[in-house]
Design a protein around this nucleic acid. Structure first.
Length: 999
RNA sequence: GCCGGGAUGGCGGAAUUGGUAGACGCACACGACUCAAAAUCGUGCGGAGCAAUCCAUGGGAGUUCGAUUCUCCCUCCCGGCACCA
């Protein structure tokens, strides 16, 4: 090829020259504007791609932030080129603690600090070349925006979903505000890490629990077909399910003896009701105060209550901590199932705000109750036991024979010095079993066991270690007595002090001999009923405490012998209880005692009580104050501005006082995605027509850390807005994709604290925005956390430069030396002007178009599936293949640029223009995949011998199995293995492989 | 503890109705160009072995002609929930 004909006019790649130029041009020509005229278009043609809008902190962006924005940018660009009306907006979420704390630190007005930060963020986003429609920008701190946040709150208030409460709530002493449950992580304030205290405070609360069932159920809803309504990562759905924490169970009333009061308990295990041995109330339970006068140890109880009140959440909820509690002496509760009187305790392991604040304690079947009972010496009664049935025919239950029920002990005896167990070897049957026997009148379990051990083995110095969990029910046939037996077998663990023995009776000796079996040989123990195996497993796994699984009921009156799981509802009914559903989700504490948030639009009137601000007076603007510092008094700094606070009551005109609490950080983000659809509307939150056109969001991309806050809150608001007719869909976000973090080069989280922050501006300056974009998308699977590597980024840059050079092949090799392609935008010459033979031209363009065609499919599918790393890989492969060709026809190269355009919009646009195109590549039509081009004439067929790859050969497409088989047999690699061998079987996978199975 | 997701070369990662493991990129080595270096281009690059070949997708079993892919058990890592009755 004639290299001299390379056009001189295309300069070498210099991102700093082209990127700003195109960014300006795109903005001025409004390439990305989601035009209103299209709002009238067919509904199917819209595509709404949304990023979780940033919170403009003072630190600016690091390279991890734009990762999600680049992804949505790529997706939205492809959809735009595919002819859809794309909505890809951006805005800022700027109310709340972090911004306020930053402003206080910098001694600035939060509003001023926010403006500065927003400007900086926007600039940082701009240089990356993102295709946002900035005409739709929203900002949650803009009064024109928060007017509608306040409006939505008022609608909730009117529907009874916002209520005032004085319950104890999470209080952060450092940030001096109450926190929602969601803002507390392991008992610490999510923002500052300070241990959270429980404090009764006046606060506004949103009744999100009213929506708990819908929030949960719609996670698994389908869209009418079998497709899930929410195409969300399973991990996020699961996090929400956990957070909502639905559980079904029974509410059961325990009467207090000599009182008309009733203690309601909530339990998920009403089947264990007959095993209740005491009740426990939360120290805050309202009855505690009322019962106090009749409690004989009043002082002790009061000390305990005040102690628990002074604990932080982290102390209170530490499960590893020893159980504490105190009995309300003199108070008895009556078990409605059996009329038994049981003591009543208070203990801080029972939470006041879950269930009913009281539990029925069944130590035999609940680990916490077990621990508590052991510590305070309370009785333990087993009522649910696992069942084992003999299965071998000789000892399986015989139909028709009589059935005997017995209480039996099984003694597991450890050797005094070795890791061995004492078993009986039954002469007649050859069984090895643990020692067992019935209980005689007046004997305890341990006494019975000690007697049996002595009688059967002669060992006499025995010490008791403990019960091996609860009893086990065993069903089997005893051949020597001709009877079916139902044994309730209690396992007991012993250890011998020494080997001293007494004489064993002749009788016993005939039956069996004692033997020591090492633990490793435990499988030799006769296991027809499996009871001994269960005992060993319990010892091995240290499961000697509560039995928490289901099983068969005992000591349960008329419910004996029934399956516990089936008896649950019957026992509930029998005890006069109710079947109920409970959630872990708590109502959303919605007020903050801080300045920087939306004012809550309510007025407190001496006469009328709480009065909502009339809608026409919205927004209630946040006034300027002299001091932003939180007061810590339970009032926000707004309380100090008497001009603002003191208003006329909207209802009676009398003296009123504005609510001074503000909304939490998460308020504005609950509905911002709706405002983008109609950002300037002064009359409504969103115009119903526009809402109907754009909603729901088709793709939502953001951090997984929002799983149990923003994403639950937003779903809650959305469902409420649906209920009042503001929105048309039951869920806001159809598809959700979480972004994997970009870690620092040291593998730690990117943070100023670790000094490992990489600034995107620096990367753009050094390598260009296109390189940054390609690199971030190429790093690995999009949702995975991967460490940044400035070393590896050169790969992305090299790739772009190789594409840049490919343009020479496209414009010159077929063109004359007069080609003016280049920065002047001269149009490339048509293919056939140069002296090439038609045949080779065709061959080359055929190869090129096949290469491109493959890439079209892969790139399109991968962008749709958000597999950007493999899409880029496909682009690299295509570039490598094009490079090998002597020339590339223009059409193929232009198609290639289109595929590249979403990833590297500046380079693609520059080269596109260099080829003479006048309109932006970003509004050119997306290429179509041609399946006929994918059909190849020949394919490589793999030869396998016994499943191992031994060679390959080329075969015509469409060759029959027989043809492939004989061709494979002829191949030298196959001959080597097949000669002199018997071919037992031949497997042909058409178009793939031939496998010979030989002896 | 319960639930969800993972584990593949020196590194990031490819590979799905079970069919050539390691695509693509980084790093590295050698070669070309250069006075030299950088850049660029070319070649190689899982391990062992001169080779034939063998071993290899966290570990162990199983199903199969054939397993990174399916089943069971185990280990470790990440994430969510957690004294929620």
């Amino acid at each position: 090829m004639n290299r001299q004909s390379r056009p001189q006019k295309i300069a070498s790649y210099d991102p700093s020259k082209i990127e700003k130029k195109w960014q300006k041009k795109w903005a001025s020509s409004k390439v990305y504007k989601s035009q209103e005229r299209k709002v009238q278009g067919a509904n199917g043609s819209k595509y709404y791609v949304l990023d979780m809008f940033p919170y403009p902190s003072g630190e600016g962006l690091h390279v991890g932030h734009p990762k999600g924005y680049i992804a949505t940018d790529i997706v939205s660009r492809m959809h735009r080129m595919q002819g859809k009306n794309v909505l890809h907006p951006m805005g800022f979420d700027a109310f709340g603690l972090p911004a306020e704390n930053y402003a206080i630190k910098m001694k600035m007005d939060p509003a001023v600090a926010m403006k500065k930060n927003v400007a900086r963020f926007k600039k940082q986003l701009e240089i990356i070349g993102l295709d946002y429609d900035w005409s739709r920008e929203v900002n949650t701190t803009d009064p024109a925006y928060y007017k509608w946040t306040q409006w939505a709150f008022l609608q909730m208030y009117k529907k009874g979903l916002a209520y005032e409460s004085n319950e104890p709530v999470n209080w952060c002493p450092k940030d001096k505000t109450v926190l929602a449950n969601e803002d507390v992580e392991n008992g610490l304030c999510e923002r500052c890490g300070t241990p959270v205290e429980k404090k009764p405070m006046r606060q506004w609360v949103l009744k999100i629990t009213d929506y708990a069932d819908r929030l949960l159920a719609d996670l698994d809803a389908t869209d009418g077909s079998s497709k899930p309504l929410l195409d969300w990562p399973e991990s996020i759905k699961e996090a929400q399910r956990n957070w909502i924490g639905r559980s079904e169970g029974a509410e059961i009333d325990f009467k207090i003896k000599d009182s008309d009061k009733v203690i309601k308990v909530f339990t998920t295990r009403p089947d264990t009701l007959f095993g209740v041995t005491y009740l426990v109330l939360a120290p805050e339970h309202p009855w505690v105060k009322e019962l106090l006068p009749r409690v004989s140890n009043k002082a002790e109880v009061e000390v305990y209550i005040s102690k628990t009140q002074h604990e932080t959440e982290i102390e209170r909820t530490d499960a590893k901590r020893d159980k504490t509690g105190v009995e309300l002496k003199g108070v008895k509760a009556v078990n409605p199932a059996n009329g038994e009187e049981v003591p009543v305790w208070i203990a801080d392991y029972v939470l006041a705000d879950y269930g009913t604040g009281a539990v029925m304690a069944v130590p035999a079947h609940d680990e916490r109750d077990w621990e508590f009972a052991k510590k305070f010496g309370l009785p333990i009664r087993h009522v649910v036991v696992p069942e084992r049935k003999a299965t071998t025919t000789d000892i399986a239950f015989h139909d028709g024979e009589s059935v005997i029920k017995r209480n039996v002990i099984r003694a597991v005896v450890k050797h005094w010095s070795e890791d061995k167990y004492l078993v009986l070897n039954w002469n007649e049957h050859g069984w090895k079993t643990f020692i067992s026997g019935g209980i005689e009148d007046g004997e305890s379990f341990v006494e019975a066991a000690v007697r049996e051990i002595r009688e059967e083995t002669g060992y006499k110095n025995i010490s008791f270690i403990g019960e091996i969990g609860g009893p086990i029910r065993a069903l089997f046939y005893a051949p020597h007595k001709d009877q079916n037996r139902i044994d309730i077998q209690q396992g007991l663990l012993f250890k011998l002090k020494d080997g001293e023995q007494i004489e064993v009776s002749e009788d016993e000796h005939k039956k069996h001999t004692a033997e020591w079996l090492p633990f490793s040989k435990a499988s030799e123990i006769f296991n027809a009923t499996l009871v001994d195996q269960v005992l060993l497993a319990r010892i091995d796994n240290h499961q000697m405490g509560a039995y928490t699984d289901s099983g068969v009921l005992i000591h349960s009156g008329e419910f004996d012998d029934k399956a516990s799981s089936i008896a649950m509802k019957d026992i509930t009914a029998f005890a006069g209880g109710r079947w109920v559903t409970r959630y872990k989700l708590r109502d959303w504490v919605f007020s903050r005692q801080r300045y920087w948030g939306e004012p809550i639009p309510l007025v407190h009137c001496e006469k009328c009580g709480v009065v909502p601000v009339p809608e026409k007076e919205l927004p209630v603007k946040l006034p300027k104050v002299n001091s932003y510092e939180p007061t810590g008094t339970g009032e926000s700094p707004l309380a100090a501005i008497s001009k603002w606070v003191n208003v006329k009551c909207p209802k009676c005109g009398g003296k009123g006082r504005r609510e001074t609490n503000t909304m939490p950080q998460w308020a504005g983000s609950c509905w911002y995605y709706l405002r983008y659809e109609d950002p300037k509307n002064k009359k409504a939150l969103v115009d119903p027509k526009k809402e109907k056109y754009w909603s729901p969001v088709d793709l939502y991309v953001g951090g997984a850390e929002h799983a149990t806050r923003h994403l639950i809150y937003a779903r809650f608001w959305h469902k409420f807005l649906k209920d009042i007719g503001v929105v048309s869909t039951i869920e806001p976000f159809t598809k959700l994709q979480s972004v994997g973090l970009i870690m620092g080069e040291d593998g730690r989280k990117m943070s100023k604290r670790f000094g490992n922050v990489v600034n995107p501006d620096d990367i753009v300056a050094r390598f260009g925005a296109d390189t940054l974009r390609v690199y971030e998308m190429f790093m690995g699977p999009f949702d995975q956390s991967i460490a940044w590597s400035t070393d590896s980024i050169v790969g992305a840059r090299r790739f772009i430069e190789r594409v840049w050079k490919l343009v020479y092949k496209a414009v010159s090799e077929y063109g004359s030396e007069g080609t003016r392609a280049g920065r002047e935008g001269g149009r490339a010459q048509a293919l056939d002007q140069q002296g090439q033979t038609a045949g080779s031209r065709e061959a080359i363009s055929d190869t090129a178009s096949r290469t491109i065609n493959k890439a079209i499919k892969k790139v399109t599918d991968d962008i749709d599936g958000l597999r950007f790393n493999t899409a880029i890989s496909a682009l690299m492969i295509a570039a490598n293949e094009l490079e090998k060709l002597e020339a590339v026809d223009r059409a193929s190269f232009e198609t290639y640029l289109k595929l590249l355009a979403p990833f590297a919009p500046h380079v693609a646009e520059e080269l596109w223009a260099a080829l003479g195109n006048k309109k932006s590549i970003h509004i050119s039509p997306w290429p179509q995949y041609d399946p006929t081009l994918a059909v190849e004439e020949e394919r490589r067929i793999i030869i396998q011998i016994n499943g191992k790859v031994r060679g390959s050969f080329m075969a015509k497409n469409g060759a029959t199995d027989a043809e492939l088989g004989s061709a494979a047999k002829q191949a030298p690699e196959a001959r080597k293995w097949l000669d002199g061998k018997d071919i037992k079987k031949m497997i042909v996978v058409p178009g793939r492989l031939v496998n010979f199975v030989i002896g």
